[in-house]
Design a protein around this nucleic acid. Structure first.
Lengths: 329, 329
DNA sequence: AGAATATATGTAAGCCCTTACATTATGGCT
DNA sequence: AGCCATAATGTAAGGGCTTACATATATTCT
């Protein structure tokens, strides 16, 4: 069944059917109704490919995600998808680990599917200095980064002010008189770098230097965080641990409890992302909420503005907020 | 740039270019190489819509998910996407809550995008007796259910044997001499019903009846689970709690700890799904692993078999496995 | 009333592929 | 050499839509 069937059944031309379908151009109310009724009766759905051929778009946005099984990313993807749908766009999901080469392939793949834009949920590769795949893609379609940013044409970033969030958290500890504040993190991402420098800035602000031994790196898992923290607790006295992700905080918490420390009296722990994990531990984790939801919604809004040729701001910064629970004072 | 450009540049006809592109038909090695080189040089990508128009498919599978921000679903979606990609299919993601009407709309939407199949990650609506939307969709494309099943043509289900998993867990408790075993669950899904009857079957097996007061329902959140469990613990003596999801087990655990109970000595708790949450609590949760990964992989395999017109089994049942941690003996 | 304008509808070209069928080239066989 | 089977390539017809432009009809104004 195609547009011709509808046209002949409704006794109009295919152009009129098309106009009814797209709400463009002038169609008399009578005709519109008749056409709609025929469409309804025959259960007609326009062929998306033919439409795509004509318009060169089927209103689809590619979502490139390092790993949707990660709670943080999953939340972002979930909201992105919902918001995009609200605006009439579908989401083509593409999960690629953090390998540059895979990332490049995935981008090509999305572009070959003629997506109208790409949203990246996950880390860029600043540390390796290679963002060419993103820059190239941005020549074809608008490129939106979630909690990341690259200064370049047609690239938009919505980020949370992770730098200040961490700086303030650490500052609060410093003001409490604590000095042995550790920072546990997992990846050299844009946001990772921001957080680390926020941690350092808090010390600098008070004319102190952070003890580099307290800056600990681990893998992205509670297990690895637990292991590294346990090691740290054996070697050094630590009064507080700030982490770059709730799942690391979970591991730190396990290690602290394992070491027999009273929380928050002997050691305070702060997570990041304010994910469900933070609500699931005992004691419940204080966590920095970096507003995934707001960031994602804003990202889609920005994108829609771009689609509608409105002015769009290239970099939007939202403010994080610490959600106090039971692992801090 | 289109296929004509490639054809003229390579001095062949568009049919030959098409044959090279699709690896169909006969093309001499010389010609193939020349064409490929031109394609490479000009950076040509075939127009997916035109191709879709011709083939009526662009190798895309719709993934319908109640909520990707849920860890369990996110894991499934992540694996599905990866496996589909391996087989050359892209994933069109569509998240709809659990409202029947939204679900129906989403299915229509996926069908209008001409997906080659639909995979449903999330509950069907058995309790409401309305699966017509799925049955209808299955008339158009193969329909695959993750951990759910409907007996109907063109519908495939890959499930985990939740019934026996729960039955055995409860049986173990009964054999330990425990009698006050509670079951905490959240939704009337296919799998939810299976689990509940598994719980009951364990009692029946020993010629006992489960105390209906110990079958507690709550919302899908640790908070709700915590609340309901706390209430239960006040009213009744409970020796073990079996839950339908890790996130409920987390709440139950919090309530038990809140009530001052020693775990697992005074109360044992078992989660379900063996998600990251189970590894994140203290004490770590014993959890029934219902093999999301295996189920998802199998689902994609089944689908590919269907695509390739091979025999495909309509219902595949995998076996769950309990992962013992610190909340049980 | 008749011209001028606005509205409604139709015609046909174009979007870029795939593929059945037609044609030509190649090579093996007698 | 001549014939046939096979391989290689080409031609042209869709596939179903959008839309510029043409045409027909309705409305408004003088």
């Amino acid at each position: 069944m195609n547009i011709y069937d509808i046209a002949s059944q409704a006794e109009v031309s295919i152009a009129t059917v098309s106009r009814v379908l797209n709400g463009k151009g002038n169609v008399s109310e009578k005709t519109r109704e008749r056409v709609l009724q025929v469409i309804e009766e025959l259960g007609y759905t326009p062929n998306i490919f033919a439409r795509g051929l004509g318009l060169n778009s089927i209103k689809m946005v590619g979502i490139l995600c390092s790993d949707v099984s990660d709670i943080y990313y999953a939340t972002a993807v979930s909201i992105l998808e919902k918001e995009l749908r609200k605006s009439g766009y579908d989401s083509l999901l593409c999960c690629t680990g953090d390998q540059l080469e895979d990332r490049r392939k995935s981008i090509d793949l999305l572009l070959s599917k003629r997506v109208d834009a790409i949203i990246l949920v996950g880390s860029t590769f600043k540390e390796k200095g290679d963002n060419s795949h993103i820059l190239d893609a941005a020549k074809e379609v608008p490129f939106v980064l979630i909690n990341d940013f690259i200064e370049a044409p047609n690239i938009y970033g919505v980020v949370c002010d992770d730098f200040n969030a961490v700086r303030e958290t650490v500052s609060v500890f410093l003001e409490q008189g604590l000095r042995r504040i550790a920072y546990l993190y997992d990846a050299d991402t844009y946001s990772g770098a921001l957080k680390l420098s926020g941690y350092q800035a808090a010390f600098t602000q008070m004319n102190m230097a952070a003890d580099t031994k307290l800056t600990v790196r681990c893998k992205h898992s509670p297990e690895s965080a637990r292991e590294q923290t346990a090691k740290l607790l054996l070697e050094d006295r630590v009064e507080a641990i700030v982490t770059s992700d709730d799942c690391l905080a979970v591991g730190a918490l396990q290690a602290a409890i394992g070491a027999g420390l009273k929380i928050p009296h002997e050691i305070q722990i702060v997570g990041f992302n304010n994910s469900m994990l933070a609500r699931s531990t005992i004691p419940a984790l204080t966590s920095i909420d970096n507003k995934v939801a707001a960031v994602s919604v804003t990202a889609v809004r920005t994108l829609i503005d771009v689609f509608e040729q409105k002015e769009a701001i290239n970099k939007i910064v939202l403010t994080a907020e610490t959600v106090k629970r039971e692992t801090t004072f």
